[in-house]
């Protein structure tokens, strides 16, 4: 079981990283979006390896299902201009690679030198019942506020994208 977990982790990690690099480097926006879908599916696999089945299901529903379709619709609605864009990286983009490496090296160094209380023992993530217990007892008020955030976002998105220019 332990060896299988390790092997599955390395395969999924390789897939996620290569798909993420593909999102940034592909010239065609549709290819980037499909690569992003593969990346999100791999992240759902990582959640399954971490015994977070509810988060994996929500990841597939929200990211692979809803957000990807939303992004594909936006690509389709703005196609004629973004399709014939010839220059994909802007002029200061050379500075982005050293910045990315700096962020990655600093974070990796901090994480590698930190002391962990429990770095390789049994999994501790609770099942769906335990998650619901935490979510609806301890975090009930933030949960309700979150529904308000979503409502405001829906109304704001409709208002911004509506045809009439009343803004």
């Amino acid at each position: 079981m332990g060896e299988f977990n390790q092997l599955a982790f390395w395969i999924i990690a390789f897939t996620v990283i290569s798909c993420a690099i593909g999102v940034v480097t592909f010239k065609n926006l549709i290819h980037s979006a499909i690569s992003m879908v593969c990346c999100f599916t791999g992240v759902a696999g990582v959640y399954v390896l971490l015994r977070a089945e509810l988060a994996a299901a929500a990841q597939v529903l929200i990211y692979v299902g809803a957000i990807s379709i939303l992004i594909l619709f936006a690509i389709m609605l703005t196609r004629h201009r973004s399709g014939d864009l010839k220059i994909f990286f802007h002029r200061q983009s050379w500075a982005a690679i050293p910045l990315m490496l700096l962020v990655g090296i600093v974070f990796t160094g901090v994480l590698a030198s930190a002391h962990y209380m429990n770095s390789s023992s049994e999994a501790m993530n609770p099942d769906t019942r335990g998650i619901a217990d935490i979510l609806f007892n301890d975090y009930a008020f933030p949960f309700e506020v979150l529904s308000l955030v979503l409502l405001v976002a829906i109304v704001g998105a409709v208002l911004l994208a509506s045809k009439e220019k009343q803004l």
């Binding site: 690099i21 940034v24 490496l101």
Partner: peptide, 12 residues
Amino acid sequence: SIGAWGVLARRN
């Protein structure tokens, strides 16, 4: 880091 690279480097 890869996401940050994309945010900083791409135009679209």
